[in-house]
Design a protein around this nucleic acid. Structure first.
Length: 584
DNA sequence: GCCGTTTTCGGCCCGACTGTTTTCAGTCG
C-alpha cells in the first residue's frame, strides 16, 4: 500500500470515530498520523523495511501495528470495524461545514438519518425539532448549511484567490476606523490552493468597522458577526474570516491567523515548556499569580518569536512540520528570494507559441538583471504550439547565434543566451527529437504534454526513461497538473526522485501560476534526497518572465535555499551541471 | 492514542460565535 492509501484509511478511521463520539485525543492521534504520513519523504514500506516506524513522531504502538497491517495485508481490524459501523454517507453529512459529528450522531441515532438527502428531507418536514436539544432555528441552520455546502467552492487556486484577496484587503484597509488590514491564513503562506480567505484588521473604532464590513460588495452573506470576528461568504463562494483587533495587537493577531494550526499548537507547546503562554493577543508570563505581556504594544511577528527565544520563522514555513525545532537549534534554512535568481532555463519565443522574439526575450532578461536565459521552444509533437521540427530547430540555432553576437556587441559578456528545447516525452519514454541535435544544445528540458492519462506504472516508466536519457538536463512540470482544471498524472514520485538523484537530473518547479509543479512537498522531498531544483516561469512573453514569483512561493514553502536551485548559480557552475548533471 | 527536564499516568491549544438546554455544548479555525 502506498503512503497515501494508508493515510486515507487512517483518515476514515478518525472520521468514523468522531461520529461515534470517541475520545477526542484518540481521534487527534489518528489525524496527526494522517498529516505526518502525507508529509513523509519516504514510503512507509521502506521505513518499515529498515525498522524505522517507531522513529516517526506520533507513531506509537497502536498506529505502528495498524500501519504494518496495511502494508502486509492491505487492511486492519479497526478499519474494517469502522467502515462497517459508520457508512460513508453518514460521514458526508459531517463533512458539510457547520454540521459536525455530534449533530450527525444525534440525528442518526434518534431519527435514523444516514445521508445528506435524508437530513434535508427531515429538516424540511420539521422532524428534527422533535429531537432533544434541537429547535426550529437549528433545523433552519441545517438547511442553510446544506444549501451553502452545495454553493461553496472547492479549494481555489492561489493565482485566483491571491489578487482577489489583495483587493479585498485594500478595501478593508479603507473602512472607517481601520489602521491596517492584511490577508492572512494559508493564502499568506502561499499554499497552492486555498479553502478560505482570512483577514486581520486593526481598528480604532470597532463598532464603525464592524458595521461597515457587511456593506463590502464582495461579501454576499454574513454567517457570523461578533465584536472581534466576522465570517462571511464572498462572491467567489469562499468562506471569508475577518478578525478585528486593536492596532497594538495587530502583530500577534497576524501571526496567529497566518500560521497553520499545527504550527500554533506546537508553538503553544513550546511556549509552555519555557514557562510562557502564547495566544492571538500576545506572549505572556505569569509572575506571582499575575499574567503579564512580555511583548511591546505594536510588536511585529518577529517580536513574537523573539519573546519565545526563537528567530523569526518565515510565514511560508509555518505548517507545523519541523520548523520550530529547526528554529530552536538555529538551523532554519535561509529561504531563497527573488533577487537570488541569475536567470531562467525554460522559456518560449515566437518560434513556437511565445509572443516575443528571441532578441526581445533576451533583452527582457537583461532588464531583469539576469546573467543568462535559455530559449527552449517546443518540439514538433506539440503541433498546437507550433513545435519545431529538425529543420526549424537548426534554423533557430542560427538565429540564436546571431542574437548572441548582437547582444555581445551591445552588452558585452555580462549576459549569455543559452540554446535549448522543451522536448516532449513520448508515450514509450523516448524523446521527440533527434539525438544529434539534442546533443548540440546547451539545455534539454523534457516534459509531457500528450498522452498523460496512462496508468501510474506506465507514466512512471515513461518519465524514468527520460531521466535516464543522457541528453536530458531537466524534467519540466513533472506532474502535469493544472490547478483547478487537471489532476496531476499518477506517478511514483519516489522512484522518479531516486532516479533523478542517481543521474543528476534536475527537477523543475514550473512557476506558471496554474501549474506550480512540482509542489512544495515533492520539492522538499527531492531536495532532501540530493536532487537539484530549477524554478522557471515557462514564459511565453516578456511579461511572462515575472511569473517566476509563483514558483518562488513553492520553493520557499519547500524550505529551499539558493544552493538548492541551480538557476541561482553563476554561469560556469550552471554550465558544469548542464554538462555533467547535478550530482552532489 | 501518544508522550515524558511534570516520564508509565494524566494531561493533551484555546478563543470566538451560535443556538438553546439560559449556562454550556457544538463547531470552527
Amino acid at each position: 500500500m502506498t503512503n497515501h492509501e494508508i493515510a486515507v484509511r487512517f483518515q476514515r478511521i478518525a472520521d468514523a470515530m468522531e461520529v461515534q463520539g470517541e475520545n477526542q485525543f484518540k481521534i487527534r492521534a489518528y489525524r496527526k498520523a494522517v498529516d505526518t504520513i502525507d508529509e513523509l519523504g519516504e514510503p512507509l514500506a521502506d521505513i518499515e523495511a529498515r525498522g524505522g516506524l517507531s522513529e516517526i513522531s506520533g507513531f506509537g504502538e497502536a498506529i505502528i501495528g495498524k500501519t504494518r497491517d496495511f502494508l502486509t495485508r492491505g487492511s486492519t481490524k479497526l478499519y474494517e470495524e469502522m467502515t462497517q459501523a459508520v457508512p460513508q454517507a453518514v460521514l458526508e453529512m459531517a463533512a458539510i461545514p457547520g454540521i459536525g459529528p455530534k449533530t450527525v450522531k444525534a440525528l442518526w441515532q434518534s431519527l435514523g438519518i444516514t445521508s445528506v438527502t435524508e437530513l434535508e428531507t427531515a429538516a424540511k418536514e420539521q422532524r428534527i425539532r422533535s429531537v432533544t436539544g434541537f429547535g426550529a432555528a437549528k433545523e433552519q441552520s441545517i438547511l442553510e448549511a446544506i444549501e451553502r455546502g452545495r454553493r461553496l467552492s472547492e479549494r481555489l487556486p492561489l493565482f485566483i484567490a491571491l489578487p482577489y484577496a489583495e483587493r479585498l484587503a485594500n478595501d478593508l484597509a479603507h473602512l472607517p476606523g481601520v489602521t491596517k488590514a492584511e490577508a492572512a491564513g494559508s493564502l499568506r503562506r502561499r499554499k497552492d490552493t486555498v479553502g478560505d480567505l482570512d483577514f486581520v484588521v486593526a481598528t480604532t473604532d470597532p463598532a464603525a468597522t464592524e458595521a461597515a464590513i457587511p456593506q463590502l460588495p464582495q461579501l454576499t452573506e454574513i454567517l457570523e458577526s461578533g465584536h472581534s470576528k466576522i465570517v462571511a461568504l464572498c462572491n467567489l463562494n469562499l468562506r471569508v474570516d475577518i478578525r478585528l483587533g486593536k492596532p497594538e495587537d495587530f502583530g500577534a493577531l497576524l501571526h496567529h491567523f497566518s500560521s497553520g494550526q499545527a504550527h500554533n499548537i506546537q508553538l503553544r507547546d513550546f511556549a509552555e515548556s519555557h514557562g510562557k503562554k502564547i495566544n492571538e493577543y500576545g506572549v505572556f508570563v505569569t509572575e506571582s499569580g499575575v499574567e503579564e505581556s512580555i511583548i511591546d504594544g505594536n510588536a511585529d511577528e518577529s517580536a513574537i518569536y523573539a519573546a519565545l527565544g526563537l528567530p523569526y520563522i518565515p510565514v511560508e514555513l509555518r505548517e507545523g512540520r519541523d520548523e520550530i525545532a529547526m528554529a530552536a537549534r538555529g538551523a532554519l534554512p535561509q529561504l531563497i528570494e527573488e533577487s537570488d535568481f541569475r536567470g531562467q532555463l525554460h522559456e518560449h519565443t515566437t518560434w513556437s507559441d511565445g509572443s516575443a522574439s528571441i532578441w526581445e526575450m533576451a533583452e527582457a532578461a537583461i532588464a531583469r538583471g539576469y546573467e543568462y536565459l535559455a530559449i527552449t521552444d517546443h518540439s514538433p509533437l506539440v503541433k498546437v504550439a507550433n513545435g519545431l521540427d529538425r529543420d526549424r530547430l537548426l534554423a533557430q540555432q542560427e538565429e540564436i547565434a546571431q542574437v548572441r553576437d548582437a547582444l555581445a556587441a551591445k552588452y558585452g559578456d555580462s549576459f549569455t543566451l543559452l540554446s535549448g528545447v522543451e522536448v516532449d516525452i513520448l508515450a514509450d519514454g523516448s524523446l521527440d527529437g533527434d539525438e544529434d541535435i539534442l546533443s548540440r544544445l546547451d539545455i534539454v528540458v523534457a516534459s509531457i504534454h500528450m498522452r498523460y492519462r496512462e496508468e501510474e506504472a506506465a507514466m512512471t516508466k515513461r518519465i524514468l526513461s527520460a531521466i535516464e536519457n543522457p541528453h536530458v538536463d531537466i524534467i519540466g512540470h513533472p506532474t502535469g497538473r493544472l490547478l483547478g482544471r487537471r489532476e496531476p498524472f499518477p506517478v511514483d514520485m519516489d522512484a522518479i526522485i531516486d532516479a533523478a538523484a542517481r543521474t543528476g537530473t534536475v527537477m523543475e518547479i514550473n512557476a506558471s501560476p496554474d501549474r506550480m509543479d512540482i509542489n512544495d512537498i515533492y520539492a522538499r522531498r527531492a531536495c532532501e534526497r540530493g536532487v537539484k531544483i530549477t524554478v522557471n516561469a515557462d514564459a511565453h512573453s516578456i511579461k511572462g518572465l515575472s511569473l517566476l514569483r509563483w514558483g518562488l512561493y513553492t520553493a520557499r514553502r519547500a524550505g529551499l535555499t539558493p544552493e538548492d536551485v541551480i538557476n541561482t548559480y553563476r554561469l560556469p557552475r550552471l554550465l558544469a551541471i548542464l554538462k555533467d548533471g547535478a550530482r552532489n
